[in-house]
Amino acid sequence: MDFLPFIRWLDATPGSVAIRESILLYPVIETTHVLMLCLFLGMIAMLDLRLLGVGLRGVPVSQVAGRLLPWALAGFVLMAVSGALLFYSGPLRAWGNVFFRIKMVMILLTGVNALVFHWTVYQRVVSWDNDARPPLRARVAGFCSLMLWCGVVICGRMQAYNWFDKVSG
């Protein structure tokens, strides 16, 4: 399926041009996107570190997940909205950017990792809730989540540099 005509159309819509050319709007959206990392990835990192057995030891895993994930979810919504607006402000440039594509794939993989974790080893969390060192599958999930999200941040940052820009105009 060829998305390019749609991406070109989107790139030329008045809203897209307005954000792109705005002196204030773009920086505000961008700043929201970056600072939400503190809320979203900060909370995710705390859970991942707990799963790895290196952070928040002594706090039950179910408590860390139950109390911090709602905050992470709120952060994710704000990241997704501000991210969608950033994409909307320059869809053509993002679409041709290799880092953008890798980033999107990695976000999908974090979702798969989270679902697998919740459907498998987390179902039996009562049996390892207080373990300072959770079972291997939980540690692997925490490790994958941490590495993938670091990759997402790195790709997101690299996307702003135009090293590999391929203008498909």
Partner: peptide, 25 residues
């Protein structure tokens, strides 16, 4: 940026707790 994310987690976990949110128990 990655360190900023970690800072966010480290600050917010405790500050949310102080606000009576997050890891309340």
């Amino acid at each position: 940026l990655l360190a900023l994310s970690l800072l966010g987690g480290a600050v917010l976990v405790v500050d949310l707790r102080l606000l009576g949110l997050g890891l309340r128990s």
